[in-house]
Amino acid sequence: MVTLDTTRLWAGHATPATVYAYPAAYVTLVLAVYRRDPRVLCSVLALVGVGPLLADPPADDGAWGTRVVLGERVLLARGGNSPVGLLLVACFAPVPFLTLRAALARRPVRTALLTLWMLFGMALFFERMTRLYETAGAAERAAARAGVVVD
C-alpha cells in the first residue's frame, strides 16, 4: 500500500519557490485551456502536483513564501473557519470555475478579468496567511514548523 507522507508534502510546499510558482502556474493553466494546449496543461498540472514533493524543505521561516504555508498550517490547526475566511471563500471559490469556463468559450476579456480577480484573491490569501502565522502564539508557530524545519 502506498501512503503519502504529509510531513514531506508540507515541507516541500513551504519552499518559497513552490509558493511563488502558484500565481504563474494559474495564469499558465488558464492560458493552456484558452489555447487548448494539452502539453502545457499537463506540464502545469505536473509541476504543481510534483513540485512540492521534489523541493527541499526550507531551513527556516524567514522567507515570506514559507510563512504563507506555515500560516495555512496554523489556520488548519485552528479548525480553518473564521468570518473573514468564509467571506474570502465566498468571493473567490467560484472564480477558477468561471475563469476556465470563459477560457473554454474563448472569451478573452472575461477570461483576463477573472484571472486578475483570482490573482488578487491569491494575494489576499497569501497576505492573510502570513499575518496569521506572524501573530500566532509561540506554541502555534512551533507546531506549524514541526516537520518543516530541517537540522
Rank of each mutant, 00 (worst) to 15 (best):
P96N: 14
D56A: 15
G62N: 03
F97R: 10
G51Q: 06
R78L: 10
V44D: 13
P52Q: 11
R73T: 03
W64C: 09
T115W: 09
A32S: 15
V109S: 03
R39W: 11
L114I: 05
R101M: 14
T28I: 08
L41S: 07
L114Y: 01
A46M: 14
P58L: 06
V95F: 00
L29V: 00
G12P: 05
A55D: 05
L75C: 06
Y20T: 09
W64P: 04
A112Q: 09
L98P: 02
R107M: 07
L54T: 12
L41H: 07
N81V: 10
V40Q: 09
D56G: 15
V109K: 05
H13T: 12
V74T: 04
A55G: 05
L86D: 09
A103T: 02
P94L: 10
E72W: 14
L47Y: 09
A32W: 00
A24R: 12
R101W: 10
A93G: 12
G62L: 06
V33M: 08
F92Y: 15
L75G: 03
A112L: 14
R35Y: 06
P83A: 09
T111H: 00
R106S: 02
L119I: 14
L31F: 10
L47M: 11
L88E: 13
F92D: 01
F120M: 05
L119M: 06
V68S: 05
R110Q: 12
V27G: 05
L75A: 10
A77Q: 08
F120H: 13
A14C: 11
L41W: 08
P57T: 04
V109M: 04
A11R: 08
V69E: 10
L31M: 07
V109L: 11
V74H: 05
L29G: 04
A102W: 00
A17I: 14
T18N: 15
V40K: 08
M118P: 01
P58C: 06
L31W: 10
Y22D: 12
L75K: 08
C91F: 04
A59D: 15
V89T: 08
V30D: 00
G65V: 07
R110I: 09
P23H: 00
G71H: 11
G51P: 04
V48A: 15
F92I: 01
G49A: 13
L53V: 04
D60H: 05
T99Y: 01
V84Y: 08
V68I: 09
V109N: 01
L114C: 11
A93R: 12
G51E: 07
W64V: 10
Y26P: 02
R36P: 00
V48H: 03
P96Q: 13
P94A: 04
A90L: 12
V27L: 11
V69F: 00
T28K: 13
R35Q: 12
A32E: 03
L70H: 02
V84P: 01
R106Y: 00
L54W: 04
L76C: 06
P57E: 07
P57K: 07
F92E: 01
L53K: 02
V89M: 06
G79D: 14
A63R: 11
P52H: 08
